[in-house]
Simulated assay, not measured.
Amino acid sequence: MLKINKPLVIVANGEFPKNSIGLNILKKAKFIICCDGAADKLLKNGYTPNLIIGDFDSISEINYTEYRGITLKVLDQSKNDLRKAIDFSIKNNINELSIIGASGFREDHLIGNIFSLYKYPNTKIKIFTDTGTFQLINKSQKIKSFKGQQVSFFLEDKTIKITSSNLKYNFNKSTLNNLFSGTLNESKENYFNLEISHGTLLLYKKYK
């Protein structure tokens, strides 16, 4: 039986991280899941996956053959390989995980990967890109930040009301009528407060 240790990191088949934050997340991982061809990039950079998930249409034949013992073939074409990896993690009681390699190359894949988080509202999943992080916020809370940090907010549900403090442009029971309406904000302190009336908000925070 496969033993899954924490912290768990999923490596998507986008651009391999260059930023030290994403690389440090990978170095600290106790269990690494690769999405199909991401295994080639991971191995090329000196890391070894614990599990490779996908339909195996992008991994090299050499690596597929060598690491076949840790592969899990999932043919469900209604899901991309990243969602297959997340679903596997949740099925194995891992609700807190990090994702790297979700950005770069095709922008439509990036958008799809980011908004896939909405499928998992009761988890603690963070996507680490080379510029910042994406995560879901599903309750009012104090959020760690730093003065001058660039932040953006996205809502699928236009009825959600947001109230905030310590932002350059604060909300006061505000709704966001468009996906871009909550972008290009800024933290004024080492934390900011967010209150949401209900539902889930997608937060982006840029690195220092």
Rank of each mutant, 00 (worst) to 15 (best):
K73A: 01
Y118F: 15
V9I: 14
I137K: 01
K91P: 10
D157A: 13
T175A: 14
F56N: 02
F56D: 06
G54E: 03
G69Y: 11
L42C: 13
L97W: 05
N50F: 04
L202E: 05
L42D: 04
I137W: 00
G182S: 06
L110V: 09
V151I: 11
Y169D: 04
K188V: 08
D36T: 12
N138H: 08
N63G: 13
S58W: 05
L136W: 05
G37N: 07
T123G: 07
N166W: 00
Q150R: 11
N193S: 10
K158Y: 09
E189W: 02
F171C: 13
N13D: 11
D76G: 05
L155C: 07
R106M: 09
Y118D: 07
F180D: 05
G132Y: 02
T129H: 08
G148K: 04
F16M: 15
S103Q: 01
A38W: 02
E107R: 08
Q150V: 07
N190R: 11
L203S: 00
R106H: 10
K126T: 15
N92G: 13
L201H: 00
F16D: 06
K6A: 14
N63S: 15
G104R: 02
L97H: 12
L203N: 01
G132M: 08
N92Q: 11
I196V: 13
E96W: 04
T48K: 15
L97C: 12
Y120F: 14
I33F: 07
G132H: 07
I59T: 03
R83W: 05
F154Q: 04
K208V: 03
I111E: 11
S152L: 13
K208H: 13
H198I: 10
Y64N: 15
G54A: 05
F171Q: 11
N138Q: 08
I21P: 02
S165P: 02
K6G: 08
F180Y: 09
D87E: 14
S20V: 10
A38H: 07
K206G: 06
S116Y: 03
I52Y: 04
Y207D: 10
S181I: 09
T163R: 15
F180G: 03
V151F: 00
S174H: 12
S145V: 04
N190A: 13
P49L: 04
K3P: 01
L201I: 03
N5P: 00
E66C: 10
I10N: 09
F134L: 01
I125S: 03
Y47A: 14
S197G: 13
K6M: 12
I114H: 02
T183Y: 05
Y191I: 07
T131M: 09
C35K: 02
S145T: 10
F88R: 11
K124Y: 06
S60L: 15
L194E: 00
I127T: 09
G104I: 06
I25A: 08
D81Q: 08
L194T: 00
